[in-house]
């Protein structure tokens, strides 16, 4: 009985995937483009902080202060500001992608997907959070 249910599930999964595999997600909206460009500009400043380990990538698709001790104190407030702005834009990005595809309720899953991809694509030497939330160096 158990096996039959599992088979049924697998079949359903396969059907659903096949039905949806065709279309790409819509990401060409002015809002997404604006967020992308803001984040790209900000990345020019953030990149050095990722590399020094001051800022790392969290498991929930955000960025966070990891070890700012190499940054002069006076600069830390601006790093803090960059982190806050980046997270605000990231939240907006996940929300806008879900919305552009007419499924606002997808925002959380979009975030989960991005969280994984940010971390996968992070350069070696950057700090990222593992699934249990601990910081590890890539």
């Amino acid at each position: 009985m158990k096996q039959r249910v599992s088979l049924f599930l697998v079949a359903m999964l396969a059907f659903a995937s096949a039905a949806l595999a065709a279309a790409d997600l819509e990401i060409n909206t002015p809002a997404i483009a604006a967020l992308q460009s803001a984040m790209q500009t900000r990345h020019n400043k953030l990149a050095a902080y990722y590399a020094s380990g001051a800022v790392g990538l969290t498991r929930d698709g955000n960025v966070a202060l990891h070890d700012a001790s190499s940054i002069p104190l006076a600069e830390r407030q601006s790093v803090n500001g960059l982190v806050a702005d980046e997270n605000r834009d990231r939240a907006a990005l996940y929300r806008e992608i879900a919305r552009a595809n007419a499924h606002p309720e997808w925002a959380a899953e979009v975030r989960t997907t991005f969280a994984q991809r940010w971390i996968d694509k992070a350069a070696s030497g950057w700090w990222v959070q593992n699934p249990s939330g601990a910081w590890v160096k890539k």
């Binding site: 595999a21 790409d24 997600l25 992308q36 997907t113 991005f114």
Partner: peptide, 21 residues
């Protein structure tokens, strides 16, 4: 599963590639 995980990943890659150049 109605959340198109593979497409979302593709979209994420596209955006991340651009943001991180």
């Amino acid at each position: 599963i109605y959340f198109p995980a593979a497409e979302a990943e593709k979209a994420a890659d596209k955006i991340i590639d651009q943001v991180w150049q």
